[in-house]
Computed example of a mutant assay.
Amino acid sequence: MNDHIDDMMLGAYVDGELHPALIGKIEAFLAGNEEARRKVGAFREINAFLRACGSDLRDAA
């Protein structure tokens, strides 16, 4: 099942940009792949950090 799931697809999943038909495939992949779950967690942390940075920049302007 993971033959086409790469970091780009995981990033699209985290960003909510993945085609709805692929969400179930990604979630099934994540259920059986600890490394991919860690990557998704890291991507979410990066997104949160970037949102916070953008928020700080808007407040400083």
Rank of each mutant, 00 (worst) to 15 (best):
A61D: 10
G16V: 10
A31S: 13
I5S: 12
K39G: 05
F43T: 00
A61I: 13
L50E: 13
E45V: 11
E34T: 07
C53K: 15
G24N: 09
L57V: 13
I46A: 07
L10M: 08
D56Y: 06
R58Q: 13
D7Y: 11
E35S: 12
D3L: 11
E45R: 15
A42Y: 11
R38C: 09
A48G: 11
G41F: 02
G32R: 08
D15G: 04
I5N: 05
E17A: 08
H19G: 11
A48W: 04
R38L: 15
R58D: 15
E35P: 00
E35A: 15
A60Q: 06
A36L: 10
D59P: 00
K25E: 15
A36F: 05
N2C: 01
F49H: 08
D15F: 03
A21S: 11
V40C: 01
R37C: 08
A52W: 10
N2T: 10
N2A: 08
K39Q: 12
S55N: 13
G54Y: 01
A52C: 00
F43D: 03
L10F: 07
H19F: 09
D15Q: 11
A61T: 10
A42S: 05
E17N: 02
G16C: 07
F29P: 03
M9R: 11
K25S: 04
S55Y: 06
A48S: 12
F43I: 10
E35H: 07
A42Q: 07
L22F: 13
F43W: 05
S55A: 15
K25R: 07
C53T: 14
A28C: 01
A31K: 10
